[in-house]
Structure formats: C-alpha cells, structure tokens
Amino acid sequence: MARREVVGRYKGSAMGLLWSLINPLMMLVIYTFVFSVVFKAKWHAGDAAEPRSQFAILLFAGMIVQAFFAEVLNRSPQLIVANANYVKKVVFPLEVLVAVVTLAALFHTVISVGVLLLAYAVVHEGLQWTAVFLPLVFLPLAMLSMGCGWVISSLGVFARDIGQIVGVLTTVLMFLSPIFFPVSALPPSIQPWMQLNPLTFIIEQTRAVLIFGQLPDWSGLASYAFFASMAAWAGYAWFQKTRKGFADVL
C-alpha cells in the first residue's frame, strides 16, 4: 500500500518519481537564494570555507525533517474520507492507513537524504561516519508523526475544516523551526521556548550526525523517544475510540 501511495502520486506524469527529487531541489535553490543572497544570512557553524554551499546543506537538512513531518500531517485530514470504502464495506484495520502515509513520507525522505549526502560528499570530499545514526534520530519523529496522524485523520472525518487548519499550522511550524537559522542565533531568553517545538531537537540532531560528525545526544534522544511513544499511544487510543463513528458520518 505504501508503494502504491508513492507510485500513484506521480501516475500519469511525464517525470514520474523524479518529481520526488525535483521538488525538494527546487525549494532548496529558492530558499538558499532568498536567505543566503537576499537576506545575507550566515550560519557561523561548521566549515565556513564555502559559506553558500554550506548554508544550502544546513538548510536542506532542516527542510528534510520539516517536509517529512508536514507530509504526514497534511495527508492525514482526508485520509479516512478518501478511503471511505474501507470504512463501509470491508473489515479493514483503518489505523494502517496512517502507517502507509508515514512509510510513503519516509520514501521521499530517503531520497532527499541521498541528495544531501551526495552534495556533502562533493563539497567536503567525504561523508561523516556518524551518518549511520540517522535512522535512530528519525525513529522517534516517525512515532510522533503517526500519533499526530491518527488524531488528525479521525478529526478530519468529523470536521472537514481540519485540513485547512493543519496546512496553516505546518507552514507556521516551518518558520518557527530552526531551519533557516541555528538556535544559538536566538536571544538566550527565547532558546528554551524553541525547544518546545517538536522539530527543533530532531533538526539539530540530524545536522549533528550528517554534517558536523557528532554522535547523537543519547539522553535527549531517549527522552524524545519516550514522549513520542506516549504521543503515538495516545493518538492510537484516540483513533480507536473515535473510529466507531466513522461509518455514520461517511
């Protein structure tokens, strides 16, 4: 089902699956130009020998995390409505639909990470060995995304406006996340509040293992994984509680 989700999205288009590569690259070029050329943004971290290319790599790492989270959330509101036949006619584990969307989002993430690693290898003539820890960094975010997906997909059945709200929230979350700037660039009084953003820690850890060659913050990752698993469990419980009314509404 995840493969069908990925292939079906580009079915009939001339470029096919290449769009999963073209779209993030286009956004990367635009954001890099706007922030590093127009607004003259600087990172003041890592190797500054080629600041614009380094800025693009740092920017892309943050975009990958945000794009994964946003894709799961933005697809969730219409997930049950678009698969009403599973609700009405077939005994089907509807909670699997959120897992399907998550796996499809992970597919696009893997492609983007591959592009990032290739760009980093070209710029720095090699890769950081700590990149092998990236799956451990992404696992808690995947659990959190599924928990949010279960809640949002169930709410989308009863309140069709939820899709519009989620779209706005994911856009706001992009600009409130440390994608275009490091957390250290913020005033010290604001930095603790930035940590409340669920993407902040994962973005920083992604850059740490992929770009800066640092080991993950194991204690922070364990804490994040604990709360993410609790959120996933709560979202799953909410979905199972509310699914009894799906057939009546649809």
Rank of each mutant, 00 (worst) to 15 (best):
F138P: 02
V122A: 07
L139I: 04
T109K: 10
A104F: 04
S154I: 12
L103H: 11
V151Q: 06
D161R: 08
I152G: 09
V110S: 10
H124M: 04
F92N: 12
M146F: 01
V110G: 09
A104H: 11
V101A: 11
F92H: 12
S153L: 03
Q128G: 00
L97S: 02
S153T: 06
N85C: 05
F107C: 01
F133G: 11
V115D: 01
Y86H: 13
R160G: 00
A121E: 01
V113T: 05
Q164N: 13
V101K: 09
T170M: 15
E125L: 10
L117D: 00
F133C: 09
K89I: 01
R160V: 07
V115K: 06
L94Q: 06
C148I: 07
Q128Y: 06
Q164M: 09
V110Q: 08
S145N: 03
V157N: 02
G149Q: 04
L136A: 13
S112W: 03
T130C: 04
V132M: 01
V87H: 12
L116D: 04
T170N: 08
L144C: 04
V166A: 08
M143C: 15
L134C: 08
Q128E: 05
L169D: 05
G156T: 03
N85D: 14
V137Q: 00
T170C: 09
F107W: 11
L136Y: 12
P93C: 05
L155D: 02
L103M: 15
M143F: 15
P93W: 08
V91T: 14
E95C: 02
G167D: 05
T109D: 02
V110A: 15
E95Q: 14
C148F: 13
I152Q: 06
V100N: 11
V96L: 15
R160W: 00
A121G: 06
P93S: 11
N85M: 12
L136F: 15
L155W: 09
K89G: 07
G149S: 00
Q128L: 04
T170A: 11
V96N: 11
G149W: 07
W150G: 08
F138Y: 12
L106A: 13
L139D: 04
E95M: 06
